[in-house]
Design a protein around this nucleic acid. Structure first.
Length: 265
DNA sequence: ACATTGACCTGAGAGC
DNA sequence: TGCTCTCAGGTCAATG
């Protein structure tokens, strides 16, 4: 699940629960995530310290610790955070648990082990090392640089939007929504799109991601003319037509062939 | 050098 | 009920 809007909602949840609280204990319950530090390293960096602020780049979450280190969490396909009073109320697939001195726990849960837990020295270096593109909601991102980043791809526009090295934060779900709002066919070749299409895609990206965050990524709260509430096998496009479900660039895409004709072959 | 494919991991849901 | 099969919103190594 977790794409940029999901991670931003996690970040706000973290800020409202876990900032400025002394950390009493660190428990790493699985070491076999996609990437992980050891429990010892985590304990050394976090125990007795507190989180002073958080950050996000694309789908990556960072928490700055008073000792100087940043805790980096990536949520893979199934990760989330949960803050609770009792450790027995913790989620089933908790991989990391922090106990604060106030008695509450913050759990990082990840059913499939495709997430990551790392310690990094600073966010900018990490982003550079990973080769991540600008965050999709970076206020410095403008329509021209957006178009330039993506039009260099020889792939489909859907794959280009999901390429974290070009623009960071967009995954399978929100690429579908952005393409739907901009009325662009997901299999359109990125290199062939016209400048007006790029402007509409840029605008749709900001609108879709901001809307998803303000809806707390709850599909029931999305505007009804969005694709997401209808994005399932039986779903129909708000225009009344049938949605197509098809693998495009290796991922399952949902789209309306009547509405999304721009760039179609 | 670039894009595409399959593997990674676990569990839910469909179909028999 | 229980078994097998397919699929899932992310990434990365291997392949073309």
């Amino acid at each position: 699940m977790p794409e940029l809007p999901d991670v931003e909602v996690f970040r706000c949840y973290f800020d409202s629960t876990s900032l400025h609280q002394p950390i009493a204990e660190v428990a790493l319950l699985s070491q076999d995530l996609r990437q992980s530090v050891s429990e010892g390293e985590l304990g050394d960096a976090l125990t007795g310290e507190q989180f002073v602020r958080s950050a996000r780049h694309g789908k990556y979450f960072f928490a700055h610790c008073s000792g100087g280190a940043w805790l980096m969490l990536h949520f893979g396909m199934t990760g989330y955070l949960s803050y609770s009073r009792n450790s027995d109320a913790q989620p089933r697939h908790t991989r990391l648990r922090l106990r604060f001195e106030n008695g509450y726990h913050l759990a990082y849960a990840c059913q499939r082990k495709l997430g990551a837990i790392l310690l990094v020295e600073n966010v900018e270096d990490f982003v550079r090392q990973e080769g991540l593109g600008p965050d999709a909601l970076d206020p410095h991102l403008d329509p021209d640089s957006f178009a330039q980043e993506l039009s260099g791809s020889r792939s489909t526009i859907k794959a280009a939007l999901m390429d974290q090295q070009r623009i960071a934060g967009i995954g399978n779900i929100y690429s579908d929504e952005i393409l739907y709002r901009a009325r662009v066919h997901p299999a359109a070749r990125a290199s062939r799109l016209k400048s007006q299409v790029w402007r509409d895609l840029f605008e749709a990206t900001g609108e879709v991601l901001h809307t998803a965050i303000s809806c707390q990524v709850d599909p029931a709260r999305f505007p009804s003319d969005y694709l997401l509430p209808h994005r399932d096998k039986e779903g129909r496009c708000p225009c009344g037509g049938e949605l197509v479900r098809r693998k495009i660039s290796g991922r399952t895409a949902y789209f309306c062939p009547k509405c999304q004709i721009r760039g179609a072959a």
